[in-house]
Nucleic acid binder design. Structure first.
Lengths: 131, 131
DNA sequence: ATACATGCAAATCATTTGCGCAGTC
DNA sequence: GACTGCGCAAATGATTTGCATGTAT
């Protein structure tokens, strides 16, 4: 009876697998190219559809850094991101989330706060070396 | 000699004026509709072009909350934003920015941190009342 | 057998751009 | 007059969707 209206598919499994194997926070296009190596007939539309399914199931997170293209992440432990302003790379920050931020702000405003999103911007180690 | 290659234009002035008069963090489309009331022939392309000019001049800030549409803000004092997950409204938070965040993270990572972006998500006062 | 999922192509939405004309310096 | 900005319409790029067919349960 575990019918939640979702059937497994080779495509979705490959998409998730590819995402699990990288730390690059890739775009749908990037995932498409990788999965395509194994399933040459897959279409970009299928990649998008499945990324949404996975996101709805909570297996994948959608990221948006205002670049005009969304990125995806299969590593769900709460963590912040660092975006290099030179090369665009996105890195996970291995730092515990600031536990008290929501409460500190909550005390000051009438809005009911559920979550926060914190991104850092700067120059990555690579780009520092190259300058 | 103050020729930086930019000439004034009625359109740009009206766009900035409209943005200065609202706290709604509007989209280009919204600004377009407002300015249009005074300059009926203005085109959406002109709005986008001028928003970019103003942003480059540092008179306007471009905001992106991952909604698929950018928003614009003429209030430049550093502040955080609150996005209502029900109605989509964006509010400025009248709270001093967390001064130590960059340094706290900087000590823990090799990346060179210039800035951070912190947004809050939840339910606004209006939507709380309506539920 | 009955959904749900896919591939393909066309559609959508926000934003950008080329071009000939108009406005500013 | 030289150069920047405009309006318009067409182009772009990311993402979504309709539809006929394929696949999982």
């Amino acid at each position: 009876m575990s019918s939640n209206g979702i059937k497994r598919s080779r495509q979705r499994e490959r998409i998730y697998h590819v995402l699990r194997r990288t730390r690059e926070h890739p775009t749908a296009e990037w995932i498409f190219e990788r999965v395509r190596e194994e399933l040459p007939k897959i279409s970009l539309g299928t990649v998008y559809r499945n990324l949404h399914v996975l996101a709805k199931q909570g297996m994948v997170r959608e990221l948006d850094f205002g670049e005009g293209t969304k990125r995806y992440d299969a590593f769900l432990s709460p963590h912040y991101h660092f975006v290099c302003e030179q090369c665009g790379t996105v890195k996970d920050l291995e730092v515990a989330p600031l536990a008290d931020v929501n409460e500190r702000i909550q005390q000051l405003v009438p809005e009911l706060i559920h979550a926060h999103k914190l991104d850092f911007y700067g120059t990555c180690a690579n780009c520092q070396a190259a300058s």
